[in-house]
């Protein structure tokens, strides 16, 4: 599985990339493949306070819906507005153009996983 090594992951299949004092959040290849063709992304709004481990939005496909659980805490500073009209970007490029929101944050929670540990979680779920 090609989960970038420089990212951190949550057990609920979100990824986080730290860029300066901000964290960028998206969902993983495993998650977007499980959902299938994504039809809608309900992201938090700019200035919302999100909390690590708490629901902050949802991702929908034709036959499924999945909660978006924020892997980090902080204030939302930007949201990927391209997903509004083209949610399929997440299917095409989940770790790049498919980012969902950015949070101003100083620190990541301790319980986030590295790529190897996350892949172990995925392997277990695939059974």
């Amino acid at each position: 599985m090609s989960n970038p090594a420089d990212l951190k992951y949550s057990k609920s299949h979100e990824w986080v990339r730290v860029e300066g004092g901000e964290a960028v959040v998206g969902i993983t290849t495993f998650a977007q493949e499980a959902l299938g063709d994504i039809t809608y992304v309900e992201a938090p709004a700019v200035d919302d306070e999100v909390e690590a481990g708490a629901e902050c939005g949802s991702i929908e496909s034709v036959k499924a819906a999945s909660d978006l659980i924020s892997p980090v805490s902080g204030r939302v500073v930007a949201v990927n507005s391209e997903l509004e009209s083209a949610p399929e970007i997440i299917n095409q490029d989940p770790y790049g153009k498919g980012w969902i929101y950015r949070v101003a944050t100083d620190a990541l929670p301790d319980d986030l996983l590295d790529a190897a540990a996350y892949e172990a979680v995925c392997a277990q779920e695939s059974h």
Partner: peptide, 9 residues
């Protein structure tokens, strides 16, 4: 838009 509905959610 069935993801709103009871049989999915």
């Amino acid at each position: 838009l069935q993801a709103r509905e009871q049989h999915i959610r």
